[in-house]
Computed example of a mutant assay.
Amino acid sequence: MKKKLMTTLSVALMAGAFFSGAVSAKGENSKKSLTALGDSITFGYNLERHNHHVSKNAFPFVLGDYANLRVRDLGVGGWTTQDLLNALEKNEKFRQAVAHADYITLDIGSNDLLQAFSDNNVTPDEVQIVLENIRNIILEVRELSDAPVVVYNFYNPFQLNDPRHAIGNVLLSQMVNPQIESLVQALNQEAGNIVLADAFTEFRENQAEYVFPNDIHPTIEGQKVLAEIGFEALSHLNGQ
């Protein structure tokens, strides 16, 4: 089993150091807030018996527990980058949630890539569409808020015994995720307070533990890893 990024004690200590402003005895409404944008990963799909509502085991809520934040999970199953971009441009619920957030996470694009990967290949043009949409999403977020933004890259959703696993590793490590990292770095220079959470590296070859079998979604353990790297990323921003 892969060693976890941090122990419960270290999480608590980091939360006290970096998120002290979020802790208050006045109750839930006095906490700082996290707005989570994304698809079914953010939603916590298949973590519960039914998928009628976002799961409290999804990474935004786990991250919120670490940092004592109120969480608004706006993950929507099946959404692509274009869906989220449209919502941020036109949907007042999404715009207001971003505008009032103290922290924001963004995990979107997996459905775009899975659709493109239906023929076991992803072309540079298909990747560029995803990157351009993510760029526009982040810029739209920055128009609405100056809150710190954590952008997740893509983990490999295929199990090791799946022939698609090796192909996915090559595509993600050589074509997709390096460009996500470059995009985040560039936008951080341009707009500030934007940081990458490296899901690909943390999931490594641990799909058996972190991804449901015959599925692409994270298990509870996988969601914890996403929460931990998101927390670490936000802590890094707060510590700058």
Rank of each mutant, 00 (worst) to 15 (best):
G168F: 06
A166H: 14
L172E: 02
N177T: 08
A147P: 05
F154M: 08
L144C: 06
D146N: 13
R142C: 02
F154S: 01
Q179P: 03
H165F: 14
G168Y: 07
D146V: 07
F158R: 05
E181Y: 08
E181T: 07
S145Q: 03
E181K: 14
G168A: 15
G168Q: 08
E143F: 10
S145Y: 00
P148D: 02
V170C: 09
N161G: 13
E181N: 08
N156L: 14
P178A: 06
Y155G: 04
Q174G: 09
Y152F: 12
V170M: 12
N161L: 14
Y155E: 06
Y152C: 00
N153H: 05
L171D: 03
N177E: 11
A166C: 09
N161W: 15
H165G: 12
V149W: 01
P157L: 04
S145D: 02
D162L: 12
L171W: 06
N177A: 13
N177V: 05
V149N: 00
V141W: 01
V170F: 13
V149H: 00
V151Y: 00
P157G: 05
N169W: 08
F158T: 06
E181H: 12
H165D: 11
Q159M: 10
L171M: 15
V151T: 03
S173Q: 15
L144R: 09
E143Y: 10
N161S: 15
N156D: 11
F154E: 01
P148S: 04
Y155P: 02
L171E: 05
L171S: 09
R164D: 09
P178I: 03
Y155N: 07
V151R: 01
L172Y: 04
I180L: 14
Q179R: 10
E181V: 05
L160K: 14
R142V: 03
V150H: 00
R142D: 03
L172T: 04
F154I: 03
I180K: 01
Q179T: 02
Y155K: 08
M175Q: 13
L171A: 13
V150A: 01
N156Y: 10
V170A: 13
Y152S: 00
V149A: 01
V141Q: 00
E143R: 14
L144Y: 04
S173P: 10
V170G: 08
G168W: 04
